[in-house]
Amino acid sequence: MQNDNEIFEEIKRSTNLNPRTEFVNDTRHLLVKKANHIRKVSKIKKLSYYWSVVIATVALTAWTFLFGGNQHIVKSYHTVMSAIPKIDEESMIASEENPSVFIYHTHTTESFTPLLKNKNPDKAYDKKKNITMVGAELTNKLKKKNINVLHSTTDFEQKLRNRNLDYSKIYDISGKEVQTVLDKNKNLKLIIDIHRDTQLKDATTIRIDGKDVASVSFVVSENSPNFKENRKIANLFHQKLEKKYPGLSRGVLLNKSQTNNPYKQNFYNHDLFANSLLLQIGGVENTIEEENRSVELLAEVIDEILIEIE
């Protein structure tokens, strides 16, 4: 049996045909008729699709706004969305809402000579490159451990200048923000005021696992009404760090005001909350990398301690 190609080849080799005029006219008429039919069917399909869309849209609109369908849609949307597991990066990190830790910086502009063009330790202060970068790093580390943290970058020194107050009033300024945070967040477990020490690198650096790490220290006011509690939480941190990373903590430093006037005593805001820390991470000559290595180790200890404290 011949296939299509063989038949076409035979037609091409055959002599020219001279069909009758009636045959040609009948064939043309038949082809035109079929073409019109195909065009008509196609048009009907397009019109049917168009009107189906219009009718469906009208019906959906009427159901939504006249018969309360919008409530069903919203409910269905939330049902579907709640069933979808949230696996994006942000959903895996804790937030600032209902914080258990509050981090701030009374001496906001304290900076590090490696970050600045000016290498004079006495002038290592900057409005942008400063200790708040260390606080931000600690905040991120804790959030990745599913700990809700509130981090303040308020420039308290600028507030001091705006009010033309003496520098000795700096803790009064930062203390107002601490009190505001305490009033709004009843589940706080720990408040940390992060500073950097004025000592040079030899005194504020330790070697851990072959890398330089900024050492830490804790300052506690002996004048604070919460002195026993303040010292207890500081000692707990020191002991935990000493056990896990010997030498990382340089200890708890007790500071006592020389005046008996309660209005001139410096409590470091420790009088506002029992579990308050003045934490010094590294010193003026430490690099930001050394600070961040210290922060990573501190985050481990904070994670452990939050489970133990009320």
Rank of each mutant, 00 (worst) to 15 (best):
residue 1 M to H: 14
residue 8 F to L: 07
residue 9 E to Q: 15
residue 9 E to C: 12
residue 11 I to L: 04
residue 14 S to N: 15
residue 14 S to T: 12
residue 14 S to E: 14
residue 18 N to W: 12
residue 18 N to Q: 09
residue 23 F to N: 09
residue 28 R to T: 07
residue 29 H to A: 03
residue 29 H to G: 08
residue 30 L to N: 12
residue 31 L to S: 06
residue 33 K to H: 15
residue 34 K to F: 09
residue 34 K to T: 08
residue 36 N to G: 12
residue 36 N to Q: 12
residue 38 I to E: 15
residue 40 K to H: 15
residue 44 I to F: 10
residue 44 I to V: 09
residue 45 K to T: 06
residue 46 K to T: 05
residue 46 K to S: 05
residue 52 S to Y: 10
residue 54 V to I: 07
residue 55 I to C: 04
residue 58 V to Y: 07
residue 60 L to K: 05
residue 60 L to Q: 10
residue 63 W to I: 00
residue 65 F to V: 03
residue 70 N to R: 09
residue 74 V to M: 06
residue 80 V to R: 06
residue 84 I to C: 14
residue 86 K to Y: 11
residue 86 K to H: 13
residue 87 I to S: 03
residue 89 E to T: 10
residue 89 E to N: 08
residue 90 E to N: 10
residue 93 I to A: 01
residue 95 S to C: 03
residue 98 N to Y: 12
residue 99 P to L: 02
residue 103 I to Y: 11
residue 104 Y to T: 13
residue 104 Y to Q: 07
residue 109 T to G: 05
residue 110 E to L: 02
residue 115 L to G: 04
residue 118 N to D: 15
residue 124 A to W: 15
residue 126 D to Y: 11
residue 127 K to D: 08
residue 132 T to S: 09
residue 136 A to D: 14
residue 137 E to L: 02
residue 145 K to Q: 15
residue 151 H to G: 01
residue 153 T to D: 05
residue 154 T to D: 06
residue 158 Q to Y: 11
residue 159 K to Q: 09
residue 160 L to S: 03
residue 161 R to F: 02
residue 165 L to V: 02
residue 166 D to R: 10
residue 169 K to C: 06
residue 170 I to G: 03
residue 174 S to V: 03
residue 176 K to H: 08
residue 180 T to Y: 02
residue 184 K to D: 05
residue 190 L to T: 01
residue 190 L to E: 05
residue 193 D to M: 10
residue 194 I to Q: 13
residue 196 R to H: 00
residue 198 T to R: 14
residue 199 Q to I: 03
residue 200 L to S: 04
residue 203 A to P: 15
residue 206 I to W: 00
residue 207 R to F: 00
residue 208 I to D: 00
residue 210 G to T: 03
residue 211 K to M: 05
residue 215 S to I: 01
residue 216 V to N: 04
residue 217 S to H: 15
residue 218 F to D: 06
residue 220 V to C: 02
residue 221 S to P: 15
residue 224 S to A: 05
residue 224 S to G: 00
residue 230 N to G: 08
residue 231 R to M: 03
residue 232 K to L: 03
residue 233 I to Y: 12
residue 233 I to D: 06
residue 234 A to T: 08
residue 234 A to P: 00
residue 235 N to K: 11
residue 237 F to H: 07
residue 242 E to W: 02
residue 243 K to T: 15
residue 245 Y to S: 04
residue 248 L to N: 14
residue 248 L to S: 09
residue 250 R to A: 07
residue 252 V to G: 06
residue 254 L to E: 11
residue 258 Q to K: 12
residue 259 T to A: 01
residue 259 T to E: 01
residue 260 N to I: 02
residue 261 N to H: 06
residue 263 Y to L: 00
residue 265 Q to P: 06
residue 271 D to R: 09
residue 273 F to P: 10
residue 274 A to P: 15
residue 275 N to L: 04
residue 275 N to R: 14
residue 276 S to H: 13
residue 276 S to D: 08
residue 278 L to Q: 14
residue 278 L to E: 11
residue 279 L to I: 03
residue 281 I to L: 01
residue 282 G to F: 12
residue 282 G to W: 13
residue 283 G to A: 03
residue 285 E to A: 04
residue 287 T to L: 00
residue 287 T to G: 02
residue 290 E to S: 09
residue 290 E to Y: 05
residue 291 E to Y: 00
residue 291 E to T: 08
residue 294 S to V: 00
residue 295 V to A: 00
residue 295 V to I: 04
residue 295 V to Y: 04
residue 295 V to C: 01
residue 295 V to F: 02
residue 301 V to M: 05
residue 302 I to H: 14
residue 303 D to F: 08
residue 304 E to R: 10
residue 304 E to G: 09
residue 306 L to N: 14
residue 307 I to V: 11
residue 310 E to T: 08
